Amino acid sequence: MGTTIEDARRALGPVGVALPVSFAATAPIDAQREAVGRLERAGYRAVWTNEVLGKDALVQLSVLLAATERMVFGTCIANVWAREPETANGAAATLAQAYPGRLVLGLGVGYPAQAEATGREFGSPLARMRDYLSRMDSETYPPAPDAAYPRIIAANGPKMLALAGEISDGALPAMYPPEQTAQARQLLGPDKLLVTGLSVGVNPDPTEAKAEARQRVEALLEAPAYRKAMAGLGYSTEADDRLVAAVVPHRGPDSIAAKVHEHLAAGADHVTLLLPIGTEFEAGIAQLENLAPALRF
């Protein structure tokens, strides 16, 4: 019998997809049920969902797990401000008991505004995450189901990645080039689960696809930490062609498949594809279906 991490690696496979995200509206649950069925039939083995305050990812996954036969689901990410850690463990363990081997719980600290919305101070992300993971295993009455599932932390910077390697089953960095995946693997060590979030451009018009990819990278570069990380990896701190191609493959399905391979070669166990935020749900599902033939490896 394998470990929880080894089992997750096998179940997830090398590549998965995140459901299209819009902060303006949530797709009806019937449309989501139909969509994950389509993605399963297209050959994907894993689907990831986001969470914001007001949208409960674990409730969402309970519906989608029931709507599929083998699909593995992950959260990218479940927000630590949305629920108490003991409740998070109880909910995740219940899903893991009901659907063994089909859940990966990704956890993240999110943003200061999300903490403020719940009446709490954001404080130190590292301290908050350490406390949250520790409290997940607190004794409760009745106890949570005795069902194993992997917990991974949304982590881009070296300190959070090191913490993920220390206290969790792995990490989920996102929107970085393969060189950062290699650094993440080095910090985590070989025995942790490394899931990489890869932004992809799917516009069939080459000029529009390039412009959209550049806009996404320019938005990322507004964060000083991201600019510093890119400089440390040997990239420009401007959205030049080299950086854009490294972060957001956008030259058709083959370019996306090639970038997935690069992340896997750099040490990722699994790569999940992230469509642009605001992608219309039905259009996004169709785009992911169209990508599937190039991603079957």
Rank of each mutant, 00 (worst) to 15 (best):
M1A: 12
M1H: 15
T3E: 03
E6Q: 15
D7C: 09
A8L: 09
R9A: 14
R10A: 15
G13H: 12
L19E: 06
L19C: 07
P20G: 01
V21T: 09
F23P: 12
F23G: 13
A24Y: 04
A24S: 10
A25H: 11
T26A: 12
T26N: 09
A27L: 02
D30S: 13
D30H: 07
Q32G: 00
R33C: 15
A35F: 01
V36K: 08
R38C: 01
L39S: 11
A42I: 11
A42F: 02
N50P: 13
E51M: 00
L53V: 10
D56S: 03
L58S: 05
V63E: 05
L64G: 13
L65A: 15
T68Y: 01
E69K: 11
V72I: 07
V72N: 05
F73E: 10
C76E: 08
I77V: 15
W81Q: 07
T87R: 02
T87E: 10
A91D: 09
A96Y: 06
Q97L: 14
L103H: 10
G106C: 13
L107G: 03
Y111C: 06
Y111D: 14
Y111K: 12
P112R: 00
G119M: 08
G119V: 10
R120L: 15
E121I: 09
S124C: 05
P125F: 12
L126V: 13
L126E: 09
L126R: 13
R128V: 15
R130I: 05
L133C: 08
S134W: 07
D137N: 12
S138W: 08
E139G: 00
Y141L: 01
Y141F: 14
R151H: 05
I153V: 07
N156M: 15
G157M: 13
P158K: 13
A162G: 14
A164T: 08
A164Y: 09
G165A: 10
S168H: 03
L172K: 02
L172I: 10
P173R: 03
E179T: 11
T181N: 08
A184K: 07
K192Y: 06
K192V: 04
L193Q: 11
L194S: 11
T196F: 12
L198P: 01
L198I: 10
V200G: 08
G201S: 04
V202L: 10
D205V: 01
T207H: 04
A209Q: 10
R214G: 04
Q215W: 01
E218W: 00
E218F: 03
A219T: 05
L220T: 00
A223S: 14
A223T: 04
R227C: 14
A229H: 00
A231V: 04
D240K: 08
D241I: 08
D241A: 15
L243P: 00
L243C: 06
V244I: 12
V244W: 06
V244C: 07
A245G: 12
A246G: 03
H250T: 07
R251D: 14
P253K: 01
P253W: 01
P253R: 03
D254T: 07
K259I: 05
H263C: 09
H263W: 04
A266M: 07
D269N: 15
I277R: 07
G278H: 02
E280I: 05
A283Y: 00
N290P: 00
A292E: 05
P293C: 02
A294N: 09
A294T: 09
L295D: 04
R296Q: 13
